[in-house]
Design a protein around this nucleic acid. Structure first.
Lengths: 347, 347
DNA sequence: CTGAAAGCGCTAACAG
DNA sequence: CTGTTAGCGCTTTCAG
């Protein structure tokens, strides 16, 4: 007690250090280090004595010190939009599994779709000297990352590309998915199709809108302004968008939704509507198959997205010198009924 | 370059240190430290010079060194069962928000319901010297944590209590919830009610079974062995359990499910069944209100669970000396139709 | 096979 | 207001 009195708050609650273990075992500090790290060159007998001291003292190596010395933290950072969004669960988990296989821990946080918060989080992770970073970006200008990347922080963007810097990205085929979803509705006879998506500052929202427009154009169909609604995914706004599309003089007969949050709200809104309206949703949602009709979706493979990104990250950490590039993960249309509803016969 | 040639692999990609910044700004090391940490006692002019050097060099404080010196990491660890499970999303997010409010980062990992993996993760987090730990335990013996807790790692268990040690726990009222859900079914005329839950080594599974049994006993109803099925939540097993309960000579007319995974599978199984069977599910699930009938559930408040646990953790970190205790968060029965179905009239 | 010494980058304590 | 010194607990280096 006396010799630690210099510290007003006992450090780490006064945990034993390798020095303490060495003293107790009657060996040198480095020998303890060797035992702890299972390095060769220690007599079985010495090892046993050291191990006993470790157990007796409840010693646990302080990785902070180790990190300082070694320069690698064996941890990666993940910044996503919202940990509570079911879309990110499987993505998060897939990344975790890859990290685990590489002996790394995962530090993660939500940007809440706020670019400042994204940057704050990313830089905090850099200060912790994470070995690598997986980012689902909220902002569009990632030049703040340049010094970090130059300093050796491997970085992979997921779901949306980086802005104003060259960086790896693993993306879903948003454009293609939205296009095929729209084409699917056209194939089932629809000519007036609405699109309700996320805020236009979000890359995927714009891509999906683009896919929708492309499919409409390819079918020779016009797109009225009132058929397109981009904005936040709060239920109130989305609900309003549905209502206004349906009560127009020339109401839409089908809707394509831009993500899982929107789809859920639209399903609710349509359930309250008298006439059946066709629906194709971007992102699969749980129980979609059990609704009546089942919800036809363009499913993204979140787990593949995460796994691919993490594997790329660790390949870079292992020194792969490839140029930064994009990987596009295909989407899959799953027909369950709502997307196959015909337009009303009366018009 | 020459003076760093000693390092075979450039540390942190050769990032500048405070020393480098000090040299460039022509000030002492400690002055840089003052500026970086916004400590008082630096002339505006000096501060400007230092700041310029920081920007020019792309300096970012190395928190590993800081942590080593200060003894606190400003990070907490969260070990849960599966990051991909929608139940843990809001919990995770709520914990993150509290951590953020306290300036701490969140390191998390999945135990995959494996006690060994839980322990491995927890100890890795302890080696990183996280300030605190929030654990959704997979195992039942947490004595391995004793040295850590003694050494000052604040620990709070969530969703399930710790085993064989005294520790804080924040739990849902599993017993009470299951009991009221069962009573609800009884009140709607059911006398043969089945229970399908998770593996009996999981605390909440046992509690919920207990609540079910208690309600049955209180109603003076017997519980046949064939009405109770505990085991893994893989769809195959759960499906089989449903089928066997329904094809028995005295089939159940209602089912209580033990968690969200089970509920989803049971809903699917019942959808394929000819006769309507009443259902009350533990845990709310998305879109439960839109199914036909809507799924009556006993909803847990995952966000409150997480927030409460995190707040308790930080209170401890701030030195609150309360004895370890349990907080129970109430559940709420949400009637949506499936739990109000009457038993078939013919028997 | 083992250990002593140096130092990772930072902050605490104390001197100017 | 500013700088110097020591040292956090570990790994690296090199000498026994």
């Amino acid at each position: 007690m006396a010799d630690t009195a210099r510290h007003p708050e006992p450090r780490y609650g006064n945990r034993p250090t390798m020095k303490d273990v060495a003293a107790r075992a009657g060996v040198g500090l480095k020998t303890v280090s060797r035992v702890v790290n299972a390095e060769p060159g220690v007599t079985p007998d010495t090892e046993r004595r050291v191990q006993e001291a470790i157990d007796a003292l409840g010693f646990r190596r302080n990785d902070s010190a180790r990190v300082l010395r070694k320069g690698r933290t064996a941890s990666i950072g993940l910044v996503l939009e919202d940990l509570a969004d079911p879309f990110y669960g499987p993505l998060n988990r897939a990344i975790e599994e890859v990290a685990r296989a590489h002996g790394a821990l995962l530090i993660n946080g939500s940007s809440a779709e706020d670019p400042d918060r994204e940057q704050e989080l990313v830089l905090a992770l850099c200060a912790r000297r994470v070995d690598g970073l997986i980012i689902i970006p909220a902002g569009h200008d990632h030049r703040y990352l340049e010094p970090e990347i130059k300093a050796g922080v491997a970085t992979v963007f997921v779901d949306r590309p980086a802005g104003r810097i060259e960086a790896d990205a693993v993306l879903s085929d948003s454009f293609g998915g939205a296009r095929s979803g729209t084409a699917h509705l056209v194939a089932h006879g629809h000519r007036r199709i609405g699109f309700i998506g996320d805020q236009p500052r979000i890359h995927t929202a714009v891509e999906r809108l683009g896919g929708y427009r492309a499919a409409m154009a390819e079918a020779g169909l016009p797109v009225e302004d009132s058929w397109v609604s981009l904005g936040t995914t709060v239920p109130e706004r989305v609900h309003e968008a549905v209502v206004s599309m349906l009560k127009a003089p020339e109401p839409v007969t089908a809707i394509l939704t831009g993500n899982n949050r929107v789809t859920v709200t639209v399903v609710r809104a349509l359930a309250a509507h008298e006439r059946p309206v066709a629906l194709v949703g971007f992102d699969d949602i749980e129980l979609a198959d059990l609704l009546n009709p089942g919800v036809t979706v363009i499913a993204q493979d979140a787990a593949t997205l995460g796994r691919t990104a993490a594997e790329r990250l660790f390949r870079r950490l292992d020194g792969a010198p490839e140029a930064p590039g994009q990987v596009v993960v295909p989407t899959r249309l799953i027909a369950r009924g709502s997307g196959e509803l015909p337009p009303p016969a009366d018009r």
